[in-house]
Structure formats: structure tokens, C-alpha cells
Amino acid sequence: MLTLECPYCGVKAEETELQAGGEAHLKRYGPGASDEEFEGYLFMRKNPKGVHFERWRHAYGCGKWFLAARCTATLEVFGTYPAQSTQPPVDLQAKIKAKRPNWEGYK
């Protein structure tokens, strides 16, 4: 059972307090987008065995959504950060790169 630190309230929350929300930093495609773009947005989710960026909600805590960088193979949590981010913070990316030299970086 995971623990993730909510970046808003600072609580190291239990998985049972949280709601998982899938891949982070999705770009929304609405009317006007091609079928491929829309499919990519809604269904072609990243599924790496390794570093992954994802959405979580502190559902039974402060109610805020936040983002996490986590390894899907070891469950190591590299860090959490506010949902209002268009990409992972630079220092977090550097931290991951230092821990996982083979990581291809955020794409």
C-alpha cells in the first residue's frame, strides 16, 4: 500500500486516502482535433515499466489533485508536485536522472 506526500497539505497520505487518476500532463484535444489526436489523448496512455508521471487526488484529505513521479517497477516515489504544472519540475527531473541514469527523460 503506497504512501504519497500531498504537496498541498504536506500529509504523507495512505493509498486508501487517495484516488489515482492516470497519466499526468495530458494535452486535451477537443472539437477540431483529428481522430488520431483524440484517440491518442484519451486511450494511448503511457505505460512504462519505470519512471511514470501520474495524477492523484487527496480525495479523503484536502481534496486537491496533485502529480507524482513514480517508478512502476519498484514503486519508488521521486516526488510530488502541484497539478497546475505543464511538465515535471526541472529539479525533479534532475533528481530522477541522477537516480536513474538510463532514464530517457520526460517526453
Binding site: M1, E15, A20, E54, T72, A73
Partner: peptide, 14 residues
């Protein structure tokens, strides 16, 4: 199932 991507073949107690 877990609600998050996971490649560990482990049990989770909850």
C-alpha cells in the same frame, strides 16, 4: 485491482 500503473507482481493488503 490497483488504480495505478504497476509492474510489481505483489499483493497489496488493503
Amino acid at each position: 485491482t490497483d488504480g495505478f500503473n504497476n509492474y510489481t507482481q505483489r499483493g497489496s493488503f488493503h
